[in-house]
Design a protein around this nucleic acid. Sequence first.
DNA 1: GCGACAG
DNA 2: ATCTTGTCGC
Length: 240
Amino acid sequence: MPRPPLHNWNLKPEEAIALQHELAQHVVLEDHLGEVHHVAGVDMAINEEHNAARAAVVLMSYPELEIVERHVYEEPIRMPYVPGLLSFREAPCVIGAFEQLRQRPDIVMVDGQGIAHPRRIGIATHLGLWLEIPTIGCAKSLLTGKYDKEALGEEAGSWVPLIHRKETIGAVVRTRTKVNPMFISPGHLISLETSIRYVLACGKGYRLPEPTRQADKLSKDNAWTEPPDEPQGQQMSLWS
DNA sequence: GCGACAG
DNA sequence: ATCTTGTCGC
């Protein structure tokens, strides 16, 4: 399921920021969902020593949440981690893993922010725009915004809005009783309410929603090896 | 100018 | 992200 390239990924920080401002104009926060039968989760693992980045994608049936497909994709690390520019470091690798899917997910859960980002375009949003699939940002920590910590209940399912510049950009959700909350925000083609609903519906009693939790495990599973200098996989060879 | 800062 | 042992609480 290759997608037409939207833009180049190898940009200078200044150019990347300008691109984010442009792309953010096209984000859709209304639900564009049909029946949901498959939810995918993506995550990454990094190994500095081998200069390797590994993305993992796990496709699960919904609402059964049984694993349908698992894929990993590796390539050299391209960018350093810069707060606010995570997608330029990880998205290309995630897309590589995505190209291996036989089935197109109805929703994709990403480890990182959706619109809960200084320019409203975290990695989940960026991936949604590139893949043209509804995405949800499921981050383990805060990047931007504030919330009423006192108002957040400690029981699983409780949540409070995440605010930034007078704007609701996401929700701080307790996915498991008495455990640190998750920072949920819509990525693209989905609303915040629906995002929260699916994250909770994909919970299996752990802090992370099952799709992301499975992808996290898969990305850390195998041993590391030096990746080729050039990105591999059919999608790059077509338009690089 | 001084902090904060997804993974 | 990754490093890294034991330990507190349900």
